[in-house]
Computed example of a mutant assay.
Amino acid sequence: MSTAPTRVAIVTGGSRGIGRRTVERLAADGFAVVVNYAGNRAEAEAAVTAVTEAGGRAIAVRADVADEDAVAALFDAAEEAFGGVDVVVHAAGTMYLSPVADLDLDALDRMHRTNIRGTFVVDRQAARRLRGGGAIINFSSSVLGLAMPGYAAYAATKGAVEAVTLVLARELRGRDITVNAVAPGPTATALFLDGKDEETIARMAAQPPLERLGTPEDIAEVVAFLAGPGRWVNGQVVRANGGIV
């Protein structure tokens, strides 16, 4: 009796935060996982170890998501190790907060390179190389709809991610590949918590009707749904934010 081939996922930004929890969640669902990281090899290897000790399969591959050659090599590594790619979770991103009047344009350019160019580079390879039945899952942010002061530059990059997501879903007509974005609300990750005092964190935790911050596990559950059973969800932005409007 033949067995179905192992499904394979690439998770960019997979060494920490939401990406790390997504790696572990997809591995628990039976995916072989490629943990992409930009610089922190130790944390990426720790993610691989966590997966393998739980009985799963994973490798770590370094790549700058905005470098087209590095991202092509990332997909090559996935295909060489596991035979193909079925799901791409593009969780890598960077955030710089500033009022528009005080914006450091060099910081803006760096954020654009990772968040916008990186999305195009990763999605381009995914569109070319995913197997049928696959899924592309990008990351936006619920701050895009909240219009919070200081977030203009970051929200602008995530607006671009949403635009790419919706268009790409339509460009892949006939390929049996879904394309969606997840837009977390305030989530207790190092990226979110860095530089915020306790009062600010408490105020943001009180915003959703569920009256808490999201957790990386909350977001990983949404990703796992879109990567697996959620085949009829396509060309959508899922605002996983506990009900903030």
Rank of each mutant, 00 (worst) to 15 (best):
Val65Arg: 01
Val88Ser: 02
Gly83Asp: 05
Leu105Gly: 01
Tyr96Gln: 07
Gly39Met: 12
Ala32Trp: 00
Ala66Tyr: 00
Phe31Trp: 03
Ala70Glu: 12
Asp69His: 14
Val88Phe: 02
Asp69Asn: 15
Ala54Gly: 06
Glu45Phe: 13
Tyr37Lys: 03
Ala70Lys: 04
Gly55Arg: 07
Gly39Glu: 13
Gly30Asp: 12
Phe82Lys: 01
Val85Arg: 05
Val65Asp: 01
Val51Phe: 00
Arg113Ser: 08
Val89Phe: 04
His112Glu: 10
Val33Glu: 01
Val48Leu: 02
Val51Pro: 04
Glu80Ala: 15
Ser98Trp: 01
Val88Tyr: 00
Val61Thr: 14
Glu68Gly: 15
Ala27Tyr: 02
Thr114Cys: 06
Asp102Ser: 13
Thr49Asp: 11
Arg41Gly: 12
Ser98Pro: 12
Glu68His: 15
Phe75Asp: 03
Ala47Pro: 04
Asp106Pro: 09
Leu108Trp: 14
Gly84Lys: 03
Ala60Arg: 12
Gly39Thr: 09
Glu45Thr: 15
Gly93Arg: 05
Val71Thr: 10
Val87Asp: 09
His112Met: 13
Ala54Lys: 14
Ala78Gln: 09
Ala107Met: 08
Phe75Trp: 12
Glu53Tyr: 04
Asp102Ala: 04
Ala54Thr: 09
Val71Met: 03
Val48Thr: 00
Val33Gly: 08
Asp86Pro: 06
Ala32Tyr: 07
Met95Cys: 12
Ala42Arg: 11
Ala38Asn: 15
Leu105Trp: 12
Asp29Glu: 13
Ala101His: 11
Ala54Pro: 13
Asp104His: 01
Leu97Trp: 04
Ala38Leu: 13
Leu103Trp: 14
Ala38Val: 14
Thr114His: 07
His90Tyr: 10
Ala78Asp: 08
Gly39Tyr: 02
Gly93Ile: 00
Val61Arg: 08
Tyr96Leu: 10
Asp29Gly: 14
Val89Ile: 04
Arg113Gly: 13
Val51His: 09
Ser98Gly: 09
Val65Ile: 13
Pro99Asn: 00
Arg57Trp: 09
Ala77Val: 05
Gly55Pro: 08
Ala77Tyr: 10
Phe31Cys: 04
Ala47Arg: 07
Asp106Trp: 11
Ile59Asn: 06
Pro99Asp: 00
Asp86Met: 02
Met111His: 03
Ala47His: 04
Val88Trp: 00
